[in-house]
Design a protein around this nucleic acid. Sequence first.
DNA 1: GAGCTTTTGGTTGTGCACAATTTAATTGTG
DNA 2: CACAATTAAATTGTGCACAACCAAAAGCTC
Lengths: 170, 170
Amino acid sequence: MSVSPTPSAGPATDAADPDWLRLDRQICFSLNAASRAFNGVYRVLLKDLGLTYPQYLVMLVLWERGALPVKQLGEHLRLDSGTLSPLLKRLEGAGLVRRERSASDERSVRVTLTGEGTALRERALEVPRRIAAATGADPAEIGELRDRLDRLTGALDAAVRELEQGPAAR
Amino acid sequence: MSVSPTPSAGPATDAADPDWLRLDRQICFSLNAASRAFNGVYRVLLKDLGLTYPQYLVMLVLWERGALPVKQLGEHLRLDSGTLSPLLKRLEGAGLVRRERSASDERSVRVTLTGEGTALRERALEVPRRIAAATGADPAEIGELRDRLDRLTGALDAAVRELEQGPAAR
DNA sequence: GAGCTTTTGGTTGTGCACAATTTAATTGTG
DNA sequence: CACAATTAAATTGTGCACAACCAAAAGCTC
């Protein structure tokens, strides 16, 4: 591969080269740190709105798409019911959404914005600008980073599918 | 800015332009998704070792630096005792580390690798290579992404500090 | 229509992140 | 020495992520 050989040590055990573990840590670690740092900024900015960051994501989808069943909400956000069910109950408890069984399909639960939930959008409008300011990067750079992350996510998801069902061959 | 104006609607309220919320969602959302996708790959690769991803990070630090007090472990990983204490107890329960009060400073708890914990390193050596393969990117691209994320994290952390103590002025 | 599979949500349990509080040991100051 | 302030961990409580499992409702097939 195109991995540059370690210029320093290790003639003896190439596989035990500590650099492998260090390099790796920095990749995954950097992403983890960035994710949590982002979370920290959102935590501060959303405190006034009474929302957590995942709750904000749910509200964004509802503001953009209107009422949705839980299933579709989960598809937009890549979250399953184990995460969404309690989250939506808290949003309902806060008076921002209603959850009501569909009449046509009793299995489906439709999530609808209340008046209060719709009104909250006004106060959320300035959040993106403040986030952009916090990143200290211009929109073009942010866009490039986003594309790169999306490609990475696609590759990682594909790798997981391959790892899980590839070797076992079902 | 380079944000393309919405071709469709909204002449009335510029501040209510839905694009702001959409664009924003994609930045934070992409990072969140990438972080969780990475977590998914690690989950699969680390299952054999009996480690979760944060536990793996702790082990990486210990393999690299040797025994450390909880405080320093937390500084390396940006994690506090609320996260580390139960995590370390689980690692101790798995027989990978020991936790012992320092003799010189009874407040401090020193985390030490057991023989089993040290031995586990051998089996972890192949993880980075498999992660790199899963990303589908060459090391140079990964390195660039890492630098970008680190810069982003720095800017976000600075923004949080400013938001929290700047306005209030202590 | 009886019986099977699929779909949709919910529940439970484990583990992590983080804020807030608590305890014990140490340090600093009079 | 007494006493306040600081420090290191632990604990508690809330919320999210995800796996595993369950239940009810549709949809199918014969």
